[in-house]
Design a protein around this nucleic acid. Sequence first.
DNA 1: CTAGACCTTCCCCCGCACTGGAAGGTCAAG
DNA 2: CTTGACCTTCCAGTGCGGGGGAAGGTCTAG
Lengths: 134, 134
Amino acid sequence: MRIGEFAREAGVTAKTVRFYEQTGLLPQPPRTAAGYRDYAPGDVERLRFVRSAQAAGLSLAEIGEVLRLSDSGQRPCAHVRDILTAHLEQVEERLVELRDARARLLRLAEIAEATDPGDCPPESVCRILRNHAS
Amino acid sequence: MRIGEFAREAGVTAKTVRFYEQTGLLPQPPRTAAGYRDYAPGDVERLRFVRSAQAAGLSLAEIGEVLRLSDSGQRPCAHVRDILTAHLEQVEERLVELRDARARLLRLAEIAEATDPGDCPPESVCRILRNHAS
DNA sequence: CTAGACCTTCCCCCGCACTGGAAGGTCAAG
DNA sequence: CTTGACCTTCCAGTGCGGGGGAAGGTCTAG
């Protein structure tokens, strides 16, 4: 199986596969006589794992840690649990920030509705956006 | 007023001020005989405007558009409203994504709780993270 | 035999908003 | 006179996850 088909099987590009190999997420596969990468059908699972871990919000570095643990024969379960917990906290924090941002934007939109361009003193850039930094 | 004080007045660094000048957000100020940037006290308002607009979620590019409109004598109100509306939509979308991500993480955490390392077949990397991409 | 689809390595580039550091000039206080 | 705080320009790097494209080799169908 050459790199194009291998990549398609997991829904990524050949570029991405080479990149993952370069960063150590995928091992270097054997090569054909012509120098082409030659993957076994079963190799796709590891690539798919990378994608689902990514979909769960893990960074490539974190995925690399999990893979290295697994490759060294350990069960990465505990480490995975830690990572998931940390990510959950980050997501919660980000949700709070985003809700704040939404509240700010709604407040500004309200001000924008109530603002007549004629009211704006010409010396300021934009009344709507002013002085709401706090 | 030299750049350090000017920057402090708005809560940024001198580096940032130079960067804003370089990207066209701030005009080039006059220089002293020694080549130092020389700001008038009133110049701080524009810098503060940049920071509050940024706090409202606008990118520097968007802030630049608003400033250019304002500098050309136009009222940027309508444009500002458009930008705010677009940002509100982006924030809503992002909130949906994050809520999905949280749900995924909670599901995975549940699986992690219920998983005994002994149950994991050695040939897969990590059962917790597998096959939950959808 | 040739077109075109695929593969290789290589190096640089994207966005975003800065930040770090080198090498040098300037100014006020002690 | 020296120290140290400040300023100047210029170049390069950060993090993240790849993407663009050149220059060249290989394979397969018609």
